[in-house]
Nucleic acid binder design. Structure first.
Lengths: 332, 332
DNA sequence: TTGAAAGCGCTAACAA
DNA sequence: TTGTTAGCGCTTTCAA
């Protein structure tokens, strides 16, 4: 059976297209018998309205474009879940695109998303190159940049200072008495937010006359297994480390597992610190330090900003700042 | 700046809409100067083609609708990543919807997706109620059901036998010498695939004259923390268990962490078995048993089936079966 | 309460 | 090589 159109429903019901449209939407007065006939015909034909036509006609869609860098750990799926939940009941629908931490791909994905004429767009981070920023501005819809605060937003913004998160963690670890630091990360040339955290961390080390005694940045993508492997290598190669800072919690969890297998006591001998505040980090049998990245909440707030901005309430650009809290430090 | 239309680009370049269209797409011959003028005008105006209009005109979209039940663990994001990767280069774009393991919500999400006139639709599982199945059939596009094989596909299907996975795991654990089994799961009334695994497991237990000595099914959603809490309770309450089967790897990892904190030796005293073959399961310092669910591959194959079906190659319904392999059993 | 016409932005088909 | 016409499925006007 070919897809039924409104026209077909109308003729099956013996009325005009317009009457069928009105009956289906229930906006205007339609006589009860007519409405019944139309609904019956629609059901009979498995009629599903064509949103393409609807949006064309209305000159606007109910779409919210969302561009995230990755789906390979739980971080961005949680952001997306927050956005979906926050949009619920608004009639708006999120559409997702993945940029793979690649600026060129990101630009193409954004262009692609914009071609669907979304009502708003949510993108990850503030570090888009100028041409991408221009495209976002020229789209003439609300733009919400999420997760980061370190930079100049195109329009609205909700996130946390990534550099600040690195600084805070460094201060906390130094206050906890650690002095011989290692760093383990991955693909930092592409993940600009992890890079900002690392730089923030190093700024504070520097202020204290300290530096990373060992540093390993792998070109691969972040994962538990990678964190484990790099930690095995680092612990064997660099004796005397009392703390390792990781690019995120996945890597850090791998680090913990490496220490457990090597019989290195955590946190007594080595303190493990990550970033994100994943559920995993809270469930581990040995605590690792981590900063909460409030992913779900950021998604929900981004959705709220979209709703406000598209309902016309206030055209001014808003910024919502989260202050990442640190968990899992040993209580001395 | 309002969004520019082709019309505006054309008039800015001093040509007709059609010429502008041709210059932009590069399909037909356009004189070099004209093309240059048009491209220049398009760039100047930040022109982004309107896909709504394009799809309307072409009577078809390049969209593939994907409906998954959840985003709260890494399983479905990995499926989605596989689909996105598999679609790369085809010009097709995946659009995702979340059903929250709710059949009513699933029906509405599917209806919503269909209203965008996608070229194909991928849905999770085979257990849709009859009205949803009817809607899928009547959509008159390729339908791919993923993850499960136990049931009657609407059209194409790629997955693994969930009941069989449960059976296989039970056989393997019995072969490993275990006899006193516990079961820990969550929300099984909604996650029909986890329920199928549990039933498969119980069928084999039954064949061996065994049964679960303890069983706890929590109404909450699956998580590491929940698995940990339920395991703490079960281990304390039911002495003598030598194996616990979990609804998935998240719950099982929580179970392992509980055992570690309680000083229960894994796998000597209690063998922990989950499902999915998550990266986490492979990185843990103590191995847990798990069956590989080939999520990413299933996503990629689903994408391949979409490409084949939409390119018209063969209208026959295909089924691709995965045989889940078991990892992490203690080698005796 | 119902219907007819026009138009949303684009492209396929035909014409010049 | 370029332009004109018609139409994709729907809703918003305007009329009956």
């Amino acid at each position: 059976m070919r897809k039924a159109t409104l026209e077909e429903v109308a003729s099956a019901a013996g009325v005009s297209k317009m009457t069928a449209s009105r009956a289906l939407r229930g906006t205007t007065d339609v006589s009860p018998e007519t409405r019944a006939k139309v609904l019956q015909a629609a059901k009979q034909l498995s009629y599903v309205a064509n949103r393409l036509a609807l949006s064309m006609s209305a000159q606007r869609t109910k779409l919210v474009a969302v561009v995230v860098p990755s789906m390979s750990n739980i971080v961005f799926p949680e952001v997306m879940a927050g956005i979906s939940a926050g949009l619920e009941g608004s009639g708006m629908q999120a559409v997702f695109g993945i940029s793979d931490y690649d600026v060129d791909k990101e630009r193409e994905v954004i262009r692609d998303m914009l071609s669907w004429q979304p009502s708003a767009i949510i993108v990850t981070g503030l570090d888009q190159p100028e041409d991408t920023r221009r495209m976002l501005k020229d789209a003439d819809i609300p733009v919400i940049q999420i997760m980061d605060l370190d930079g100049e937003p195109v329009d609205h913004c909700v996130g946390l200072s990534q550099g600040g998160a690195g600084e805070d963690m460094a201060r906390a670890l130094i206050a906890a008495g650690r002095r011989r630091f290692g760093y383990i990360g991955s693909a930092l040339n592409r993940d600009t937010r992890a890079e900002k955290r690392r730089r923030g961390f190093e700024r504070v080390l520097d202020q204290h006359g300290l530096r990373f005694a060992a540093k390993h940045i792998d070109p691969g993508s972040s994962s538990i297994v990678l964190g484990k492997r790099l930690t095995m290598e680092m612990v064997k190669a660099s004796a005397g480390l009392d703390c390792i800072y990781y690019s995120n919690d996945d890597m850090a969890a791998g680090g913990l597992f490496a220490c457990m297998e090597l019989g290195v006591s955590v946190p007594d001998e080595i303190l493990i610190a990550g970033f994100n505040g994943l559920e995993l980090a809270h469930a581990l049998p040995v605590k690792i330090a981590t900063s909460e990245s409030s992913r779900r909440e950021i998604g929900e707030i981004a959705a709220r900003l979209v709703r406000e901005a598209t309902s016309g309430e206030g055209r001014s650009s808003k910024t919502v700042a989260f202050k990442p809290q640190i968990f899992g430090l040993p209580t001395t």
